[in-house]
Design a protein around this nucleic acid. Sequence first.
RNA 1: GCGGGCGUGGCGGAAUUGGUAGACGCACUGGAUUUAGGUUCCAGCGACGCAAGUCGUGGGGGUUCGAGUCCCUUCGCCCGCACCA
Length: 849
Amino acid sequence: MTERYNFLEAEQRWRAAWQDARSFAAVTDPARPKYYVLEMFPYPSGKLHVGHARNYTMGDVVTRFKRARGFNVLHPMGWDAFGLPAENAAIASGIHPARWTYDNIATMRAQLQQIGLAYDWDREIATCHPQYYRHEQKMFLDFLKAGLAYRKESWVNWDPVEHTVLANEQVVDGCGWRSGAPVEKRLLSQWFLKITDFAEDLLDGLETLDRWPERVRVMQANWIGRSEGARVFFTLAGDGFAGETLEIFTTRPDTLFGASFCAVSANHPVARRLAAEEPAIADFNAECNRMGTSEVAVETAEKQGYRTRLVVEHPLIPGATLPVYIANFVLMEYGTGAIFGCPAHDQRDLDFANKYGLPVPVVVRSPDGPVPEITTEAFVATDGIAVNSGFLDGLTVAEAKRRVIEHLAAAGQGAGTIQYRLRDWGVSRQRYWGCPIPIIHCPTCGIVPVPEADLPVELPDDVGFDQPGNPLDRHPTWKHVACPACGEAARRETDTFDTFFESSWYFARFCSPRSDAAFERKDVDYWLPVDQYIGGIEHAILHLLYSRFFVRALRHCGYLDLKEPFAGLFTQGMVCHETYKNADGAWLYPEETEIGEDGAILDRQGRSVTLGRTEKMSKSKKNTVGLDAICGSYGADTARLFLLSDSPPERDLEWTAAGIEGSWRYVNRLHRLVADHRDRLGPPGTKPTGAGATRRLTHKTIAAVTADLEQFRFNRSVARLRELSNHLDEVAATADGIELREALEALIVLMGPMMPHLAEELWHLLGHGGLLVDQPWPSADATLTRDDVVTMAIQVNGKLRATLDLARDLDQTQAREVALSVPAVQRALDGKSVRKVIVVPNRIINVVV
RNA sequence: GCGGGCGUGGCGGAAUUGGUAGACGCACUGGAUUUAGGUUCCAGCGACGCAAGUCGUGGGGGUUCGAGUCCCUUCGCCCGCACCA
């Protein structure tokens, strides 16, 4: 009986050994092929649970695998450390956001180290550190010079309870995500980055990202939302507006002859001017702005319009005019905030026209049909033919579009254009715990950039959270400065950057984390792009799009020469767990429950517990499993093994006690396998020469695991390892010592990326002095991965009747003879004559009658 | 509405990309070891059938010598976006 594997002691010992050897320190070395592995860095929210660990473990497997394959691997870790939760903690418990953040970082760093992740910790960064954020202040000033940053008054989401602007993604069903209060639209001056300058390039670049998931590329393409169409200039008539131009955007300029009205957004300048003179319009506009933008609100909201006293002249029909409405379904944020309505060929316009009794001129018919009768369903097909449209009659939709754009352009009444849904990125936040925007507002000089010599603009420490709103704004001295241009009294910008600013370039900072510059050119030229990026699908748009934009903006400003930041992207599934509620309806942690004698779930007091749905692990539902607890009772390798083996990495994984027990048994079984047989192994370094089953399986496993790891098929590679170890369990007592050593050593090296501590321990047990992490990856002997004898399936009319072990590459005639001689085949033939025999070499023989 | 994806034993999932469906594991059943529980070991485990065998990858149809895989159709589920003109 061998001793049990003391994982606690062993795991600690091997982590110390890697640290002493600086095994994972990365050094820029253009002579070697590089590989940059990165997991999306975490927000330091407190403690890690096993759900977080899955993501990092995947990156770790890739890191260790690529290292063994000879790559110079960069695998860094850091902290996305600015953000609102730190301020909430300050408000709730009086802890300073910096203290709270750095404490959490210390806790989480220890947790990450505990699971044995192969990070180069010398490169650790925290984005809340002035040595990090000073560089993005410089970038912002460069963007400003390059015209990529600007200040603009615009309509933003305002949370009336939190007294701050919210990003679009922080508005859920029209309400603030934390306060639950209905979000208002406010017109505020904010800083924007010109992501729209790169709309076309961001869209085109998606084509090159062939190692990104299709759905992420599609989501980004939809978000950018390219539409081809036209701008059309209508001339307004009406007191105070006569002769002015109303510009609209349309994707269907071919339907211009079918126009029966124009409509503008409640926030359109025309609507606002009218509101100033007519209280009823002001009320209507306010009502439009109050309406939520949630899915439910949009679906249930009726089309509402206010008929103004204005009309426009029809650009193509002399003498004809169209009424101008203010309408609740026209968005100021898209196009020009104004449309022309063609009810026959747009469902929204038809709903609106029907409600307000407007005409419905039909101007498109289907290619083979009559002119459609329009009542409640608009005819929106784009394969039709223009009718009732003057010089466009008889043209296809596509031709008519082209023709009418030519006509409008020649007459100065419009132009073909490409419209994007993408909007510029508003980066101002009315928050304390973020990077200060390096700008000074001077009453005489206006907006003045902070001189580079004065960077960084550091956050003041002495702030209070006893009142709502931005503490920077209330600070007694911080914002009062002399204008760098004229020396007169001025004030600092008190808004801070959106925290997505920090995460948009951190992958570059990791290349030169201690540089006085943002990064060194020689380092980013070598390491970037990231070869394998790993993270959650929730960043499909935001972080991943912002980073792609940043790389373009930085290239524009001469920082680097890079097209895309992330060459390969993998979006991993979430870790889920059952949820539990007690009789009072309160959530319970898994460890607060137990199984009663009859199998019922009980709480600590023995009262019954309701089993809820299996859901993504989250603090709020208390269905998390702590990483510390699992590492303490089963060890890091057991946790890693379970996280890798139970589901394919892109799918969700259900964490179960039974599952972790199974992984635990396997870890111990592997230890026993090596410990029980190490005395009868051949000496290290002796090459076996046989070609028996053990050697064949060993080399097949090497080939299969290598291929699986290349393709992120971790669950499959674990199955391969188990097949090999199952076989070795059977034969170990009698196998040739030299062959057994080869097999065990292969098994150990192959398991290394997934169970690194155990692998080191077993490597050591086999008598090796060095570290396993310095061992090269084994290569499979091609003569051993091909069998001399193959099992072939024998079918009759496609139905399996027998299997036969036959010599590899048996010729067709022999194969046919052998197959026909099988009794089960003869029985199935039932005396019928054979029409033909299909032989797929080394796979199948199909007898057709 | 638009877009993306999925559907295989009691469960998680494999399937050499058109060639033996269910690898590997979890759960379960029987047996051995153990004072007992756990561990460990042996055997079984898609359905029906004593067996030979038949059926079987959401349903229906098709292509093919051969379909989980390709095509058509239909049902169900998940995710993303959405009054984008």
